[in-house]
C-alpha cells in the first residue's frame, strides 16, 4: 500500500500552521486507507523538528537539513520532493496553498506528469466509474474546490496518475494532535549527494518578512468590518466589541484596501478562511469573494443599514441599522448581563 504524504513548510523555525492542518487531514485519510502517513521537512537547523511533527500521527518523517535549503528556493526543494516521490511513490500528496506551496507543487506535478488540484476546501475518498472505458476506481481522492471566482464548486479527480496532488489554504482544515506520545521513524536525506549547484540558479539578495502577529482563524468569535464601517476610528468600536466578547477583528477586502485594517485580518477568497462559532459582519455587503471565507461559520449576524444587502440572506440574524448605533448597544447589554 502506498502512503499519504504531506510537505511540511517551515515558518520562522517552526512547522507552519497549514502543514499541521494538512497532517491532521493526512492522518485521517491514512486511517481510512489503512496506510501510513509520511511527511518531509526541507530546510536548515531542523534538529528536533520531529518532536513537533510526530504528535500529528506521522509514521515516517523525511528530513533534508542543509544551509542551502533555507530560505526556500524552488528548484532545490522541487528536486528533493521529486526524488522522494520516485522512491516512496505516495498515493496522495498534500501541500499548503501558500506562497511556497503554490510555487513548489505545480513544478513537482509537472515533473511527475501528474494531476494537481489547487485550493481544495474538502478532501474525501470516493469511488468512480469512467463512463468511456467502464473502468472502475476505488478510493479516489475527491478534491473539492471553488473556481470561477467562487461561483462554482468543482469535484476534481486524478484517476490514473500518482500521487494525487492537492494544495489547501491555511485555515481550511482543522488542526488536531492525534496522539501526544506517538513516535515515527526519522529518515535523513543525504543532501550532499543530491544537491548540485545547478539547483540554485535563483539567489536571494534580500528578505523582509513581517512577524506573524494576528491569527484570527483560531478565534471562536470574529467581528468583521467592511467598507461600511467608514473609518479607522469607527473600527475601534469593533475592537471594543471583540474585546468584551473574547474575539478577534476581521475585515473585508474593501476595508483593508481603504486602510481601515491590516491585510492579515482579511477574510475571504484572497484572505483567510474562518469558521468561528460566531461571525458578526458589520457594514459588509456580502460579495461571494468575502462569503467564500466565512459562510461555514456556525452563526452569522449581519449589521447593515441596507435591508437588501446580500449578506442578510446568509445571516441567521440581520440587524438593519447603523453600526455606530448598534455596536455600543451590544457592548452595553453584554457588560450588564455577564459577570
Amino acid at each position: 500500500m502506498h502512503n499519504i504524504f504531506v510537505y511540511c513548510e517551515i515558518d520562522e523555525g517552526q512547522v507552519a500552521d497549514v502543514s499541521l492542518e494538512l497532517l491532521t487531514k493526512g492522518r485521517k485519510l491514512a486511517n481510512e486507507l489503512g496506510c501510513k502517513l509520511e511527511a518531509a521537512v526541507i530546510g536548515h537547523n531542523l534538529k528536533g523538528i520531529e518532536k513537533e511533527i510526530y504528535p500529528y500521527g506521522v509514521d515516517v518523517l523525511h528530513v533534508a537539513d542543509d544551509k542551502r535549503l533555507a530560505p526556500y528556493t524552488t528548484l532545490a526543494h522541487a528536486h528533493l520532493v521529486v526524488d522522494l516521490f520516485k522512491k516512496i511513490k505516495p498515493e496522495v500528496a498534500l501541500f499548503g496553498a501558500t506562497s511556497v506551496g503554490r510555487d513548489l507543487a505545480p513544478r513537482v506535478a509537472s515533473k511527475m506528469k501528474c494531476g494537481l488540484t489547487a485550493d481544495c476546501t474538502s478532501l474525501v475518498f470516493g469511488d468512480h466509474k469512467d463512463n468511456k472505458s467502464g473502468k472502475e476506481y476505488k478510493n479516489l481522492l475527491y478534491q473539492i474546490r471553488p473556481a470561477f471566482g467562487g461561483n462554482i464548486i468543482a469535484t476534481i479527480i486524478n484517476p490514473d496518475t500518482r500521487p494525487q496532488m492537492a494544495t489547501v489554504r491555511e485555515g481550511v482544515m482543522k488542526r488536531e494532535i492525534s496522539d501526544k506520545a506517538h513516535k515515527g521513524s526519522l529518515k535523513t536525506i543525504k543532501t550532499d549527494e543530491v544537491l548540485t549547484d545547478e539547483l540554485f540558479p535563483v539567489r536571494i539578495l534580500e528578505r523582509h518578512m513581517e512577524k506573524k502577529k494576528i491569527n484570527i482563524k483560531a478565534s471562536p468569535v470574529i467581528i468583521s468590518g467592511g467598507y461600511g464601517v467608514g473609518s479607522k476610528e469607527n473600527f475601534e468600536l469593533l475592537y471594543e466589541l471583540a474585546d468584551v466578547l473574547g474575539g478577534e477583528v476581521g475585515a473585508s477586502r474593501a476595508a483593508v484596501d481603504a486602510g481601515f485594517a491590516d491585510h492579515e485580518r482579511q477574510v475571504g477568497q484572497t484572505g483567510v478562511t474562518v469558521r468561528p462559532k460566531l461571525y458578526i459582519a458589520c457594514g459588509i455587503s456580502g460579495a461571494v469573494q468575502h462569503t467564500a471565507g466565512m459562510s461555514e461559520s456556525a452563526k452569522i449576524i449581519a449589521i447593515n443599514n441596507d435591508p437588501k444587502a446580500p449578506i442578510n440572506e446568509l445571516a441567521d440574524y440581520s440587524i438593519i441599522g447603523n453600526i455606530e448605533d448598534i455596536i455600543p448597544k451590544m457592548i452595553k447589554f453584554y457588560k450588564q448581563n455577564t459577570k
Binding site: 506528469k113 501528474c114 494531476g115 494537481l116 488540484t117 468512480h128 475527491y142 471553488p146 467562487g150 461561483n151 462554482i152 464548486i153 468543482a154 469535484t155 476534481i156 479527480i157 486524478n158 484517476p159 490514473d160 496518475t161 461571494v288
Partner: peptide, 10 residues
C-alpha cells in the same frame, strides 16, 4: 490527468 467529476453552481 485531472478530470472534473462534478460541477455545482453556488
Amino acid at each position: 490527468p485531472t478530470k472534473v467529476k462534478k460541477i455545482e453552481n453556488v
